[in-house]
């Protein structure tokens, strides 16, 4: 076999192995498949406390992922946390009185937004705001309240 042909065959093999590796990384290891061609619309919501919510956290309805958190900032008027989220276009029939809660997956897991679908006739569109919100559960506040109720119970 010609020397140049031998080089070309081996380099072709190297490229083939690289393509297989890339396909493996894209499809099996990373979220490549879910980032592709999913059009979204953006809504936002104001929370008085978002706890440990981060950008890219999932937005779920009944545990099913329907979107992602895309931005967290302070609303300049009310000084509450403003959370922007992208909802996938296929879930574009959510009523305007849908409520958003910040929930935790598992006891110490990461936080996500859970949507409770409402019953209004009007639907959420690009740029809408979700008005019914429930803040994150902060463990310290919870323990504080528990201690107060315990001491009150003891002094009776």
């Amino acid at each position: 076999m010609n020397q140049q042909v031998k080089f070309e065959v081996w380099v072709g093999l190297l490229v083939l192995i690289t393509l297989i590796s890339t396909a493996f990384i894209a499809l099996k290891v990373s979220n490549f498949s879910e980032t592709q061609d999913r059009s979204t619309y953006q809504v936002d919501a104001l929370f008085s406390n978002i706890g440990g919510l981060t950008v890219r956290a999932p937005v779920k309805i009944s545990g099913v992922v329907v979107g992602r958190v895309t931005g967290i900032s302070i609303d300049p008027v009310t000084y509450r946390a403003r959370v922007q989220m992208d909802i996938f276009k296929e879930y574009d029939d959510l009523p305007t009185d849908t409520s958003a809660m910040i929930l935790t997956s598992g006891l110490l897991g990461s936080q996500y937004i859970g949507l409770e679908v409402g019953a209004d006739d009007e639907l959420l569109v690009e740029g809408s705001r979700i008005y019914f919100t429930q803040s994150a559960l902060v463990l310290e506040n919870l323990i504080g309240r528990l201690l107060v109720s315990l001491t009150e119970g003891g002094s009776k």
Binding site: V29, F32, T35
Partner: peptide
């Protein structure tokens, strides 16, 4: 793995 590895940011 798929939950935490981002195609664009990481790979």
């Amino acid at each position: 793995m798929q939950l935490h590895v981002d195609w664009h940011d990481d790979v």
